[in-house]
Design a protein around this nucleic acid. Structure first.
Lengths: 334, 334
DNA sequence: TTGTATGCGTTATCAG
DNA sequence: CTGATAACGCATACAA
C-alpha cells in the first residue's frame, strides 16, 4: 500500500498533524523536525492523497468543460480545442484539472446540477452553444462558479467572455483604408449569424469614421459555404462602383471568392484585394496566402480559466466582458 | 448545506447503513423501507457525494488523457480530438470522467507518477507521441492501467491500439486495381514517417498479390507539404510508364498534386486518377472531391476507453492490437 | 513549536 | 432484512 501521512509521522517520530503542517506550511515547524519529516517522506515515497484532501477540504480542484462537441469537431469547431488548451493550461498551473464532457442544450441543466450536487467539480466552463435561460437560473440559484465562452444570446447575469468580432471588423476595414482602397464590398453569412453580423458592424463603424460608405448593394448575404463564395463573385463583379477590396466574413467564403476570382483571371491583390477572418482552415493554404484578422483563442481560454478560478474564490464577482484583441496578419491578398 | 446520507436516514426513520444499501442495491431491503427512503431522498434532494464515495472506495472514476497538444492543435493534429471525443463518450457511459492534460515526452513520467500516486486518476490514455521507454517501465512497475494510442516505436509490454495504416494502403491499391488502373505511382512522406511508410507497404502488398509492380522509380519521397505535392508533379509526368493513378500518402500532398496537375490542364480523373488518405483537412473541399481511405478515429477513441476500463478491472490482461477498419470513400477523383 | 482529538460522507463488516 | 460501528487519509481547532 501507498504510504499515508500517518506512516510518515511514525517514521519521523512526530505526530500526524505536525506532518500535515510541515507539508502544507500551514503552521511553523522547527528546522529539525522539518528535516526529519522530509527525510521520512522521501524514504517512504509519500504522496498525499488527493482524494482524502478533497474529502476534507470539500473541494475537488476540478473544472468541467461542457460543450456540444460535434462530429469531426476539430474541423467543425476548431476554436473549441484551442480554448480548451488555454483553459487547461491555466488550471494546471493552479493545481486544478480540466474535465471534458459532452453536453447539449437539452441535457445541460441536469448535467450541471448532478455534477455540482455530487461534488464532481468546483466550477464549469460552458460553451455558449449549450447555454440556455434555464441553465442561467440554475447557475444563479445554486451560485455555481462558471464562465460562459461566448456572449449568450439573451440578457443574463451569467458570467461570460467573448471575442470582439466588432473590433475585428473595424481592424479589417482600417487596414484596407490604410492601404488606400476606397471601394469596398462585404460578403457575409446569414442574418442570424451573429459573428458575421458583428464583423460587418465593425466594418461599417470604421468606414463611417473615415466618412466612407458601404452601400447596401455592396453587402452580400450567403450561407457561409465555399460554393456561396463562388457564387458571390458574379454579383461582386456587377457592382458599381466596382469593389477594389472585398471583406469576406469567414474562411470558406473567402476561399470561394478567391477561387472564382482567379478562375476569371482576376489577379489578387493587383485587381481586387481580399481580407477575411481567422487563420484556419484555409487562409494559409491559398496562393497567395490570405490577409486575415485573427483571434488568439488559446489566450481566451487562459483567461476563461483564470476567471472561473476567480469565481470560485469570489463567487459574488460578476464578469461580462470581451477579451483578447484581434490582430491583423497581413499576407499576400492586400 | 447539501443533504447527506445521514439526513436521509433520519428523515426516513432508518439507519444510515440501510440507506446506503437501499441506494446501491448492495443488500436486500424491504419494499416498505425502500419507499420511505426514496421519498425522504427525493424530498431532501439528496445527492451522494462523489468525493466521499471515492474516498471510501479508493477509486477516482477518472481517466487522464495525456498528449502533447500542439499550438493550433485542431489543425495540426485533428485526430487527437476525435479520439478524445470517443474516449469521453465511452467513459461517460460507464460513470467515468475524462481529464485532459498537456504533457511532453520529457515530463510524462513525473506527471503519471504523481497523478497516479496522489490518486488523481484510475488510469491513463496516452498518445504515442509522449510515450517513452522510461514511461513503459513506470507503467509496468506500478501496474498502472493505461492504453497507448498508436503503436510505440519500440518493443514493449505496454498496451496499445492503433489504426492499421498498412491495411489502408491495401484498400487504396485494391480500389485502383478494381477500377482498372494498371500503372500506379505513390507520393509519400519522409522515410521516418511511419504512417506514410506503412501505407506504402500496404500498397505494395496488394499490388504484388495481383502480380503488379510498383517500381522504385514510381515512389516519391517528400516532406508531406502542399508545396512538395506541387513539385512532385513534375516528376510524376516524366515517369515511364506514365502513371494512370497516383496514391498520395496524405492530404496536403494530394492537394498539391491536384493543384499542379490541374494547372497544367490535366483532367482528374479522366487523365490521371487520385487517391489519398483521411477526409480532412482538404479532401472534401477540392474540385472534384477526393476519393480517400478514411479511418474513424472516434470509434478508435471509444475502443480505447473500453480498453482502459477493462485494464482497471483486469490489470493483467495485455492488449496490443489494431482496431477500426479503414473504409474507402469513393468520390470524384477515381 | 508540537500533539490530541475530531470529523468530512460513505461503504462495509458484523451482529442481531 | 436492519442497525451499530469501524474505517478511509487528511486538515484543523484547540490544548499543551
Amino acid at each position: 500500500m501507498a504510504a499515508t501521512i500517518q506512516d510518515v509521522a511514525n517514521k519521523a517520530g512526530v505526530s500526524q498533524s505536525t506532518v500535515s503542517k510541515a507539508m502544507n506550511g500551514t503552521s511553523p515547524v522547527s528546522d529539525a523536525t522539518m528535516k526529519k519529516i522530509q527525510k521520512a517522506a522521501k524514504e517512504l515515497g509519500y504522496q498525499p492523497s488527493a482524494i482524502a484532501r478533497s474529502f476534507k477540504t470539500r473541494s475537488t480542484y476540478q473544472i468541467i468543460f461542457l460543450a456540444d462537441f460535434p462530429f469531426d469537431a476539430a474541423f467543425v469547431n476548431p476554436h473549441l480545442f484551442e480554448i480548451m488548451r488555454g483553459v487547461q493550461h491555466t488550471l494546471s498551473k493552479n493545481g486544478y484539472a480540466l474535465v471534458m464532457q459532452q453536453a447539449t442544450a437539452k441535457d445541460i441543466c441536469s448535467i450541471v446540477e448532478t455534477a455540482y450536487g455530487q461534488h464532481k467539480a468546483d466550477g464549469f466552463v460552458l460553451h455558449m452553444s449549450v447555454v440556455t435561460k434555464k441553465l442561467a437560473d440554475v447557475l444563479n440559484k445554486l451560485a455555481i462558479p462558471h464562465i460562459v465562452i461566448g456572449k449568450p444570446g439573451f440578457d443574463t447575469r451569467m458570467c461570460w467572455i467573448d471575442t470582439d468580432n466588432t473590433l475585428s471588423g473595424e481592424i479589417a476595414a482600417a487596414h484596407l483604408i490604410e492601404k488606400g482602397y476606397t471601394a469596398l464590398a462585404f460578403v457575409g453569412g446569414r442574418p442570424d449569424d451573429m459573428t458575421c453580423w458583428r464583423r460587418l458592424q465593425g466594418v461599417r463603424t470604421t468606414l463611417r469614421e473615415h466618412e466612407m460608405d458601404l452601400p447596401q448593394t455592396h453587402v452580400l448575404k450567403t450561407n457561409s459555404s465555399l460554393a456561396d463564395g463562388n457564387h458571390a463573385v458574379k454579383k461582386l463583379l456587377k457592382m458599381s462602383p466596382a469593389p477594389q477590396a472585398v471583406i469576406c466574413a469567414n474562411n470558406p467564403i473567402s476561399l470561394g471568392v478567391m477561387q472564382a476570382l482567379q478562375d476569371r483571371g482576376i489577379r489578387i491583390p493587383a485587381d481586387i484585394a481580399l481580407v477575411t477572418f481567422d487563420t484556419y482552415p484555409f487562409s494559409v493554404y491559398t496562393e497567395p496566402q490570405m490577409t486575415v484578422v485573427d483571434i488568439n483563442m488559446y489566450e481566451m481560454g487562459q483567461e476563461a480559466g483564470r476567471l472561473v478560478l476567480q469565481k470560485i474564490k469570489h463567487p459574488k464577482r460578476q464578469i461580462q466582458s470581451f477579451t483578447t484583441t484581434p490582430v491583423l496578419i497581413q499576407r499576400g491578398t492586400t
